[in-house]
Design a protein around this nucleic acid. Structure first.
Length: 575
DNA sequence: ACTCTAACCTATTCACCTG
DNA sequence: CAGGTGAATAGGTTAGAGT
């Protein structure tokens, strides 16, 4: 039963006519019947949408067979199904984009004011830990969704964002269905259990599938809602929900003043864990047998039971071998161990020399352009970052930076920082004409393999890493070199000689310009200025040079020239 | 090596819907 | 009526198959 409905045929919402009763539908129908030059556009029926959505969660890129199966069950033809998936993926990507600088600035300027309003001294949800729009949306929906008697994930502080998304989708999608139903059947959303039963596993549910009214989201209103909801008694609920949320503290007990404008000293806060889940987190000490490191910033160590490891992005995890997250976060202060704190103070501790571990040293090497790090990166990319053969159309070199973006990007400024200018259409629309005419710089995103890169940014590192202007000064204290993550190197398999050929520059491009290899270190970041480490790095580079040999094999020279050309192109040197 | 096709992407348009 | 959403289009790239 292949209902190959030709495009632009009368197909109002895909809902059969008999079901379309009710005044709203009639009026809507009359509106729809205005003739479009190319015909009428049909809306996908809610039922079909559900089916497609379910299929999308299972497989965002169905092959032909899968599409044909879907065609059997929905009132769309294969082409339409294909288009639907295409748009759906685009929608996902669009909504998973990180915040624009304007958004961030707005959050900081307006949101912080709301949070720190003296009228709400105890409601200091530390939204600053969430750097993604979606996370804020999700956390906002958490509170909007919670009824007065609903606890967060009964017995668990972890909320399944997927469940929330499903719930919201239900709310929106059923509007169409409900409109077509004149009966007064109670419009009750699925129960918590029902919605949770629909929760897809983290592996199946893309982290960026936050569809609900994304563009309606307003940071300030979100925050306002949060504070409102807490004012309406949710604080007691919160204490009830969070076992370690300081239930013993009297609500009247004054809280110590916040350490900074962006860090409220609240008992609890909302956060997005590194696993990508919204959590209610206590800022107070919780009894934990795990030894916690001491933090020079005076940040209270927070030990919190982590949910079972689940991956936000399979694509990344299947290709990149990283140490367990806990290995990276255990030594972090609580403001960093979960979520993506923008609190620069919290990051300062990472710069303390005595807190440097192997990872730090590795990061130093990478940031300083050390050949050791370069080789390490290349080895990791050639072994651990094998291209996913199931993904077509994304050759390794493109996955490195999605060069298509580069080509279409705004080249008013060459990416001397290794930043690839990228401005989506909506971003361009956001730019005021004056800003655009003044050559306002486009949004810069670091080239990334996929969205997961954005997830792995450090705090304060939103859509746009701090270039010259930093929204707040303390960010200048942050180690900018943390950009040098292996994931950024993509899946490029370079000839061995490239390491020598492009030593340093290959990776330094992502950093501030021109820290020469002779100096041994980048010119930024406290940890790079340690002369002892500089000496070590130079010595290592010498070792590498001797290991690699000074002579380049003639057979490799062509490859290297090719790579050099590609690198040059990737930096915007098109001539 | 070349062509063709399918699949995918990004950007864009525009009908429709909603507040 | 402005703005958001989503269906659809346009133009581009790539992989793979066929010649």
């Amino acid at each position: 039963m292949l209902s190959s409905a030709p495009a632009y045929q009368p197909h109002i919402g895909g809902i059969p006519a008999p079901e379309q009763s009710g005044p709203e539908i009639i009026s809507s129908k009359s509106k729809v019947e205005k003739q479009h030059p190319r015909g009428k556009r049909k809306r996908t029926a809610a039922r079909d949408k559900h089916i497609l959505e379910a299929a999308y969660q299972v497989n965002p890129k169905p092959d032909k067979a899968s599409r044909c199966e879907l065609v059997e069950s929905v009132s769309l033809n294969e082409k339409e199904v294909q288009i639907w998936f295409q748009n759906r993926r685009q929608n996902d990507r669009r909504k998973s984009r990180p915040l624009s600088p304007q958004d961030i600035a707005e959050i900081r300027s307006r949101g912080a004011r709301v949070l720190l309003s003296p009228a709400q001294p105890t409601n200091g949800y530390q939204l600053g830990t969430d750097t993604r729009e979606s996370s804020l949306r999700n956390t906002a929906h958490v509170w909007n969704q919670l009824g007065p008697n609903q606890n967060i994930a009964e017995g668990s502080p972890v909320l399944q964002i997927g469940a929330i998304n499903k719930q919201n989708e239900w709310d929106r999608d059923t509007r169409d269905d409900l409109r077509s139903q004149t009966n007064t059947e109670s419009r009750k959303p699925p129960t918590r259990d029902q919605s949770q039963s629909e929760v897809f596993s983290e592996a199946e549910f893309p982290s960026n599938s936050t569809r609900h009214d994304a563009n309606h989201w307003d940071p300030t209103s979100c925050i306002s809602k949060l504070t409102e909801s807490s004012q309406e008694g949710s604080s007691s609920r919160l204490q009830q929900r969070s076992p370690s949320s300081g239930a013993s503290r009297s609500p009247d007990t004054p809280l110590p003043p916040p350490r900074s404008q962006y860090e409220c000293q609240s008992q609890i806060r909302l956060s997005l864990s590194l696993e990508g889940k919204a959590e209610v987190v206590s800022n107070e000490l919780s009894p934990s047998p795990r030894p916690s490191p001491t933090f020079p910033c005076g940040v209270s160590p927070l030990s919190y039971p982590r949910p079972p490891s689940s991956h936000r992005n399979q694509a990344t995890l299947t290709s990149v071998t990283l140490p367990p997250i806990s290995a990276l976060t255990d030594c972090l202060p609580p403001t960093l161990s979960r979520g993506r704190s923008r609190n620069a103070q919290a990051w300062e501790f990472c710069c303390d020399s005595d807190k440097q571990d192997e990872l730090t040293i590795q990061a130093e090497n990478e940031s300083s352009g050390s050949a050791v790090a370069a080789i390490s990166l290349l080895r990791s990319t050639s072994i651990g970052l094998q291209p996913n053969s199931t993904k077509r159309n994304i050759p390794p070199i493109q996955r490195l930076g999605q060069d298509r973006k580069v080509k279409k990007a705004f080249f008013g400024q060459t990416s001397s920082d290794g930043l690839v200018p990228f401005m989506g259409s909506r971003d361009r629309r956001r730019l005021s004409p004056s800003a655009a005419s003044q050559g306002s710089k486009p949004s810069f995103v670091h080239e990334s393999t996929d969205d997961s890169d954005k997830e792995n940014r450090g705090p304060g590192e939103d859509r746009n890493p701090p270039l010259r202007q930093t929204p707040f000064p303390s960010q200048e204290n942050m180690p900018e070199n943390r950009e040098f993550t292996p994931s950024l190197s993509g899946n490029v398999k370079l000839p061995r000689g490239v390491v020598q050929y492009r030593s340093g520059q290959l990776f330094r491009r992502r950093c501030t310009p021109a820290p020469s290899l002779q100096q041994g270190f980048g010119n930024q970041g406290k940890m790079s200025q340690d002369p002892q480490k500089a000496t070590q790095s130079v010595l290592r580079d010498e070792d590498v040079k001797s290991f690699m040999g000074e002579e380049m094999s003639p057979s490799k020279r062509g490859d290297i020239d090719c790579i050099a050309g590609l690198l040059s192109l990737s930096r915007g040197n098109w001539r």
